[in-house]
Amino acid sequence: MIGTVFIATSLDGFIAREDGGIDWLPGVGEVGTEDYGYHEFIDSIDAIVMGRYSYEMALSFGAWPYGEKPVVVLSSRTVAIGQDIARTVESINAPPHEVVQRLAGRGWRHLYIDGGKTIQGFLREDLIHRLIITTVPILLGTGIPLFGPLSREIHLQHLETRPFVNGLVQSHYEVRRHVAE
């Protein structure tokens, strides 16, 4: 199973404002803007695993942004799933390793892991294999961080970095599995 993160951060490492707002992201709500490789990435995955807050943010976009792609929402609380998306969205209350086992049992091989706490939990359990991080040239000062405390260092191998004309920079990393201590 491959777990990949595809996310944008501020230059100071935040994925959202403290209230969860992402209005600082370029192109939010704009038609015809650069997609930064997002559609190609979405086409490469089998399912999306996200936390409840990310799910609620996606619901606020109006039209469901994930089409027919399966979405698994991780939450210890009940998640309201509308009839219009119930065919492709489900909620699971389980630790990351158990989620991966269940989804692998369905034949899914590539998961998009989204949401700050969800990403952090999957990183702690060594279930993230790739990170695609787009850095937006803005300093928010405070907000929801992409990364949190870890019990050990996680070594990454830089694969590529791509600049965009609007100042965004997208870097691709692979998590190194066996690092000599």
Rank of each mutant, 00 (worst) to 15 (best):
Ser76Trp: 08
Asp114His: 06
Lys117Gln: 07
Leu140Met: 02
Ser91His: 08
Ile144Tyr: 00
Met50Lys: 04
Trp108Thr: 10
Ala47Cys: 14
Thr78Asp: 15
Gly116Phe: 05
Pro137Tyr: 11
Asp84Cys: 01
Gly105Ile: 09
Ile128Tyr: 01
Tyr53Gly: 12
Pro145Ser: 07
Met57Pro: 02
Leu74Lys: 04
Gly143Phe: 05
Asp126Cys: 11
Met57Gln: 09
His39Gln: 14
His39Ala: 15
Ala94Val: 13
Asp46Glu: 14
Tyr55Cys: 11
Ile119Gly: 08
Gly37Asp: 10
Thr88Leu: 01
Ser75Arg: 09
Ala104Asp: 13
Tyr66Asp: 01
Tyr55Leu: 10
Ala86Ser: 14
Val136Tyr: 13
Glu125Leu: 03
Gly67Trp: 02
Ile138Val: 15
Met57Asp: 07
Ala94Met: 06
Pro145Asp: 07
Phe122Lys: 00
Ile138Pro: 01
Ser91Gly: 07
Val71His: 05
Ala94Glu: 11
Leu74Cys: 07
Lys117Gly: 09
Gly141Pro: 04
Ser54Glu: 12
Asp46Asn: 10
Thr135Leu: 02
Ser75Ala: 11
Asp114Cys: 12
Tyr53Gln: 15
Val72Pro: 00
Val89Lys: 11
Ser75Asn: 00
Ala58Asp: 06
Arg52Ala: 10
Leu74Ser: 08
Thr118Ile: 06
Tyr38Trp: 11
Arg130Val: 14
Arg106Gln: 09
Met57His: 15
Ala63Gln: 14
Ile128Pro: 03
Ile48Val: 12
Ile85Ser: 14
Gly105Lys: 03
Tyr36Met: 12
Ser91Gln: 13
His39Glu: 14
Ile42Gly: 01
Gln120Ala: 14
Val136Phe: 08
Gly107Asn: 07
Ile113Asp: 00
Ile133Leu: 09
Val136Arg: 10
Thr88Met: 04
Gly37Gln: 02
Pro137Trp: 02
Ser75Glu: 15
Ala47Glu: 04
Val136Thr: 12
Leu127Lys: 01
Ser76Glu: 13
Leu140Ser: 03
Phe41Ala: 00
Glu98Tyr: 03
Ser44Ile: 12
Tyr53Leu: 15
Ile81Asn: 02
Met50Leu: 14
Pro145Lys: 11
Asp43Phe: 10
Tyr38Pro: 02
Ala58His: 05
Gln83Leu: 05
Ile45Ala: 07
Gly82Pro: 10
Leu59Asp: 05
His110Met: 03
Thr88Asp: 13
His110Gly: 00
Gln83Arg: 06
Thr78Val: 15
Asp46Pro: 06
Glu68Phe: 04
Ile113Ala: 01
Leu131Gly: 06
Arg106Gly: 02
Trp108Asp: 04
Arg77Met: 15
Arg106Tyr: 10
